[in-house]
Write a protein that binds this DNA or RNA. Structure first.
Lengths: 99, 99
DNA sequence: TTTATTGTTCGATAAAACTCGAACCATATG
DNA sequence: CATATGGTTCGAGTTTTATCGAACAATAAA
């Protein structure tokens, strides 16, 4: 076996992404980002303490769904569209199409 | 408000489906069903007690992802492809394509 | 420098989910 | 009838997650 060392068990990685998206609040975050581009953490209009929001952003970032960019005192979040499309082709469109 | 009473918040329903799929074991179940059609509960080769397996099947069924058909003493599971496609167009293909 | 604004991180607590054995229920088969 | 097969359900124990307040850090503005 020569030309195969990658293509490993894709299950866990995909499961992690789906798990991260399997929450109404996090799905709402993704929904707004898909429509409005970049949004700072406290700009989603979600009524919830900062620490709770921060938790959800972390889950989404660690799953590779969100990226963030610091500007001033704000942290702008954005969907990592290209990277996700590369990792899981067709997945994101299939989800965003139902938001 | 006349012509709108449905089309409610699609978030929770979608989140439930994604949550159900956000687990390696359940994703493996879906993967096998996508390839082999109908499989009885104990036919997935997953090393786990029946009660634990039953739990995962319940999660998948209650999310509307799996259907089941009793035959003899067995219960055959299958993906509810059409129903899922109707509820969330393009979602299932986007996921199965990465399994 | 002081004061806001925008977050993160750290416990602690509460709620959910996973796992497992045991009991149970059909449907078969001997 | 007795026994095996294939699953579900229940209850308990364990592990994860979610939520929140409090403390902290960095940048901006007064």
């Amino acid at each position: 076996m020569a030309s195969r060392a990658k293509k490993r068990d894709a299950g866990p990685e995909l499961a992690r992404v789906l798990y991260a998206l399997g929450d109404p609040i996090r799905l709402e975050i993704v929904r707004q980002l898909a429509r409005q581009g970049e949004i700072p953490c406290l700009g989603f209009g979600i009524d919830m303490p900062k620490s709770s929001l921060s938790h959800h952003f972390r889950v989404l970032r660690e799953a590779g769904i969100l990226g963030s960019r610091a500007e001033g005192t704000s942290i702008f979040n954005f969907l990592q569209v290209e990277e996700l499309e590369r990792r899981f082709p067709g997945l994101l469109p299939g989800i965003l199409g139902n938001l």
